[in-house]
Design a protein around this nucleic acid. Structure first.
Lengths: 185, 185
DNA sequence: TCCTTTGCCGAACACACTGTTTGTTTTCCT
DNA sequence: AGGAAAACAAACAGTGTGTTCGGCAAAGGA
């Protein structure tokens, strides 16, 4: 009846989640096993599987909560305005994001992120008057690909580049083309 | 002394390679195990490990041989002229490429492809007079990201889109920005 | 042809990880 | 306090990995 969850459940889930994050930071996503997690979280094996089907699921819960993936689609203002904030946010949580998005990260996680991002971009395009079409979807794919490419490149080693640098390159390459595509009414 | 390799070695390596390709087509890269491979290739386990350290290595040998990844960088003609041929080539060997590049494919393989592509693009930019810089590298990353994004999207299910469609979207989004970047001398 | 080198085989090995099951004990909620 | 829900430890079968061994067969040079 109550919206509250049993305290034990809360504690267990949180312990598992925390353990996974720690371990991902230490060994990369692929290197972490369920056995690692339950040891670190000090949780029984059966308990883990009572809550999650595997390590993927532990992280998928997070992604939905990321605020910047649900911006209000604005029809005015600069195109794809969300990018700089995202680059910045990502720079803040650098170590975790590095572990998740880099080459040592999980392909499934990246795919999920791409998918959510694509939805956001597509909606902005539609809000700006683009007609739904296969071509539009391909355009969205390009934009998301470029964005994620930058993110991954950055996650994989480059420590000197700033969010502003990333954003500048992204905009320089992508915005002119996108503007042209959107102008074709 | 001789450049020739022992016939037995040749046969074994080829059998393994063929088995892996077949299996990737059937079950996707991730789904294939070393055990699968040696069964299909009818090769002893120890033999396999005498030749390769794992399934990755079996495929890495191939990538270098892909001709379209070594185009002569041309300073005239259209920008990034290699894209359409690549889309077309990929469409020809569709099933294998799908298995390797799609979400069921191996992240390591994709990474390798990206890396080689980045080199090609970067060299074309330099040949066209761009100055080496961090910004240029980020630009390259964007371009490659967009390209691979399309490729992967296509590999993951879209059967109706033609190479020409992919290429059109790529060029529409990316070329204007790239031209502008290269014009900044 | 002979003979030495080289590679292959097959079987077994220790190890690691997964996902499920069992019966028991602890913790929470009311 | 007492019933329900959750966590527990331990063990299980299943699957995959990577290495080791001695015996056997083929290759290719003399």
């Amino acid at each position: 009846m109550s919206g509250k969850v049993d305290r034990r459940v809360r504690r267990t889930r949180q312990a598992i989640h925390r353990a996974l994050v720690e371990l991902v930071l230490e060994k990369g996503y692929d290197g972490v096993t369920v056995t690692d997690i339950i040891e670190r979280a000090d949780v029984g094996r059966s308990t883990f599987y009572a809550h999650f089907t595997g390590k993927q699921e532990v992280l998928f819960g997070d992604l939905g909560g990321l605020a910047f993936l649900h911006p209000a689609p604005s029809t005015d203002g600069p195109l794809l305005a969300f990018t700089l904030p995202v680059f910045e946010h990502v720079a803040d949580e650098r170590s975790l994001v590095r572990a998740l998005l880099g080459r040592r990260g999980g392909a499934a996680i990246v795919a999920r992120g791409e998918q959510m991002l694509a939805r956001v971009v597509r909606e902005e395009f539609l809000a700006r008057g683009a007609a739904p079409s296969v071509f539009l979807d391909l355009t969205v794919t390009c934009v998301v690909g470029a964005f994620m490419g930058l993110l991954r490149e950055w996650a994989d080693g480059d420590t000197t580049t700033t969010p502003a640098d990333l954003d500048a390159a992204f905009r320089a390459v992508v915005i002119p083309g996108v503007e042209a595509v959107l102008a074709r009414r």
